[in-house]
Design a binder for these strands. Structure first.
Lengths: 293, 293
DNA sequence: TTATCTTACGAGAACCGTAATGATG
DNA sequence: CATCATTACGGTTCTCGTAAGATAA
């Protein structure tokens, strides 16, 4: 019942070890063991397999609830803290890798003219982490992007209570190595490309699973996974023929070794949203971004 | 930090009294006072005005978080309890007042043929309460209805983690007293009716605010509020000229004193969904309802 | 054996009830 | 002055750390 126990559970599940969780949380091994034992006696079922430490089915079920609950508790704390907070002089903005940085740069320019003393930081992380950061108050705002059907909002982690403003919806393109047989085409549909080799770059273009979910096209099998967050790095792999990737068209202009072909058939867009929780600085950003609600 | 404190807070806020909350929760006055004091000292701000007892701004903020968190905690408990549960012989189904009972009756028929020993109950409550009941395991399934744009899901309380299946989308009609000047029309739009007198029947046709939100038409002012859950009762008020109401067309056939005119202009439908959490009985119901995902 | 989880036990803190005190209409 | 919230205090329970025990690799 105690949320601290739930936090211990998710930490243990994440690290796969009682001792490691104890170190991270500032408890004793014993304390962690007692937390888990208390939870298990409460629900009347084992939640973790031991040796190796791995959630049971019931554990997985509880974790699915625990993570959003803990996120929401943190969000509540952050929300109340902001009520008492004084005017901020420091602003931290999160951004996912492909989020339209040029737009953000221009908007920040305007905000800084309006508030000269402002000290701003931009921190790049993946979309879910940015959403969590905004919800928990670590970030004052976040610029995130992803693939979605036109008009659909981006999917964010459960329990992350944030306001989302649409910043842009841009066309998507397929990144191909130069000389690829499809490189001359005007537009391409995904449906014929289920058998192609794909590059899965979750940190850059979003995970392939997101594309699969948004498009409804099955069988997009990846042959290589790129775990960096660097666009040029990923495109080098595309240029070398390791697979295709779907990327916002604007990210592909003027890069050697790859050709862009606009993605036409399943109506999908590269969507950019500004996440915030209503602070003054975030509102100024929203206005400067010309965001449509 | 203790969720029990949050539960105390929401109860006190709902009842507007420490003593009443203590009675309902099985605490003493003193215990409730200590809960609130602990929360206030934790967040560093008063959460309630006293005499009369009413949430402060910070209190409202915390309540917005606390209610979904508590709901989710209950849902987690129910979820885990179901893992250990044996085959159910008793099924409780929630239904909002206008949810297509005839369809449900037919589906139940099929389910009972397949499982003859089944003891079923249907319990009528408003939509949010049904969703909460399904999430917390009090109900095995729920049939709820409401007004929405075509294809849009119904809005459910935050934290209510349920699966929703679309059962039907039916046309909406305006209920008018016989002899009303608009009664002869073939179809009507809401946009010209902002100035009409409206009947607000949150328990029957859904709150007027829902219609306002779904249609985008402002200024639907109600002159009378009906708090019952009885269709005929509400329509009697319409027949007497106390105001117009938007109701699913099928609910209006063959009722004395009122005429139905189909609502055409803002594309809205009366939507019915089956809420459940994946139990065997609920799945059988879903199949019998021929629900499309 | 070694790393790891579990159990035993005691100190300290937290929670809740009884009862007295204070405040408000 | 009657109702309601707060404070004081004590008993019970809970939580956590130390330390010893159990168990699998």
């Amino acid at each position: 019942v105690d949320p601290r126990f739930l936090r211990t559970l998710v930490t243990v599940a994440r690290l796969g070890s009682f001792s490691a969780a104890a170190r991270e949380l500032g408890y004793t091994q014993s304390g962690v063991s007692q937390h888990i034992a208390a939870l298990e006696s409460d629900v009347g079922t084992p939640l973790l397999h031991r040796r190796p430490v791995r959630p049971t089915e019931a554990g997985e079920r509880l974790l699915d609830h625990a993570r959003p609950i803990l996120l929401r508790l943190d969000a509540a704390r952050a929300d109340l803290a902001r009520l008492t907070a004084q005017a901020a002089t420091r602003m931290v903005i999160g951004a996912s890798p492909l989020a339209a940085m040029s737009r953000l740069a221009h908007a920040l320019e305007q905000v800084r003219r309006a508030a000269p003393g402002l000290e701003a930081t931009v921190r790049v992380a993946e979309r879910a982490a940015v959403a969590v950061g905004v919800a928990t108050g670590e970030l004052d705002a976040g610029l995130v992007d992803g693939i979605a059907a036109p008009g659909d909002p981006l999917r964010l982690p459960e329990g992350a209570r944030v306001d989302a403003l649409t910043v842009a919806e841009d066309p998507l393109a397929l990144a191909l190595p130069v000389g690829h047989p499809l490189a001359g085409r005007r537009g391409l549909g995904l449906d014929g490309l289920g058998d192609a080799r794909w590059l899965d770059a979750p940190g850059v273009a979003g995970p392939l699973s997101e594309l699969r979910a948004a498009s409804g096209v099955d069988g997009l099998r990846s042959t290589l996974r790129y775990e960096g967050v660097d666009v040029a790095g990923m495109l080098a792999l595309v240029a070398a023929g390791h697979g295709l990737a779907v990327v916002p068209e604007r990210a592909l202009t003027g890069l050697a070794g790859v050709t862009a072909v606009r993605l036409s058939r399943p109506p999908l867009v590269h969507r950019t949203e500004l996440l915030h929780r209503g602070g003054a600085a975030a509102s100024a950003l929203a206005a400067a971004l010309g965001a449509a609600r």
